[in-house]
Design a binder for these strands. Structure first.
Lengths: 213, 213
DNA sequence: CTATGTGAACAGCTTCACAGCG
DNA sequence: CGCTGTGAAGCTGTTCACATAG
């Protein structure tokens, strides 16, 4: 348990956005950036940017701004993505396969090293070109422990999401990116991030519905 | 522009969760539910549940609770999903095709009625069994206006996301579910919801990294 | 003169606690 | 009694404004 009791969750969320924008700036050969520039690109006030960064240290130079490369390295370290995370995927349906073929993971420091699915017709075969071989969910516990995996992508049907979750947590998983449309109940030392298309669409429906016609 | 200046965005987000949980309760033949029951299933305090619902009206009966079917209907109406939204999909790559095959949209009141992609080898062909035929992005403006579409799924590469967005907004799109890893800049009357896997994974990495080892 | 870092003021969201209804 | 609806209190996050450094 951490010494970061007091850091707002929204600030951590924005750190990811800063990192991404800084990488874009770097690719445009920009070497120094101010909180104002960074904020403008992301629709965030400059004060917010400075306060967010200040939670983690003093990275800037008054009168100058922030060194792009330096700040990228600091943010990666803070977020823990200066190492590569070994990740498992539970569920090899349409969504699971789309996730596997998503190139973005690799470059951001996440590697899918194991895939599980209860469908016997998928087991034993690799996904895509040379992806991991699909294993049965019974093997999950031993693989997680042997490979020391702590992060999971959950792309199984809603009906089995909680039970698969329970199994993964028993095996030692500490973070779950949940694509199933259910609210998972987990112990306090496990973190869940939800990607819920229906929820997002309903937000959009609400905000359009009550502004326009 | 609306009379809902004062409704917290987090409350609207939770409305979607309440709706989903209520549908699960209904499927278990439960007809009445208290704020406490609803909250427990979602890890939300009972006071929060009551306050959220109270922003929109008085739906409960003291001493009894809330009628499940009734509340479902009310929430659907509030969220605007008691009608079906006609949605377009921009980008027919891996992710776009996975989105199209996702069954969840239909039942929640969203129907993908048009698909656009700049890759000529995809154009003119239907996606999947009898999905919509892929059209070129040049046709987007006329289709949006003819079909009166106001919601879009954006699943194009990051490099073209902003320019495709600008085109969609010019055509009249008011809500965008953005899967590209960039922060879209849009006018005030357009709403964007971001689904960003890297951001979510970095959150998980951060929270695991700073608690466990 | 420019831009950071930060206490202090402010705003927004959540929790508390209770009056009132069934 | 049980449970809702809601002012008031409490807390968390954001914005302001300025002292300070380059």
């Amino acid at each position: 348990m951490g010494r970061n009791e007091s850091i707002p969750a929204p600030a951590v969320r924005r750190l990811s956005l800063y990192l991404r924008q800084l990488e874009a700036f770097r690719d445009s050969n920009l070497h120094t950036v101010s909180s104002k520039q960074l904020g403008q690109a992301l629709n965030i006030t400059d004060a917010q940017v400075r306060k967010d960064l200040a939670y983690f240290g003093q990275f800037g130079q008054p009168g100058i701004g922030y060194g792009v490369d330096e700040l990228i390295a600091k943010l990666r370290h803070i977020l823990g993505t200066d190492q590569t995370w070994r990740v498992l995927l539970a569920g090899a349906g349409n969504l699971g396969r789309a996730l596997l073929s998503y190139r973005g993971f690799q470059s951001k420091g996440f590697e899918v090293v194991a895939v599980f699915d209860n469908d016997p017709s998928l087991q034993g075969q690799p996904i895509g070109e040379d992806g991991p071989v699909v294993q049965s969910i019974e093997q999950l516990v031993s693989v997680v422990q042997k490979e020391n995996i702590r992060l999971a992508l959950l792309a199984v049907p809603a009906a089995v999401a909680q039970s698969v979750t329970d199994g993964m947590i028993g095996a030692g998983i500490k973070g779950i990116l949940n694509f199933a449309p259910v609210s998972l109940l987990v112990p306090g030392d496990v973190t869940v991030a939800n990607v819920d298309l229906a929820v997002h669409l309903e937000q959009l429906s609400f905000s359009i519905g009550s502004s326009g016609l």
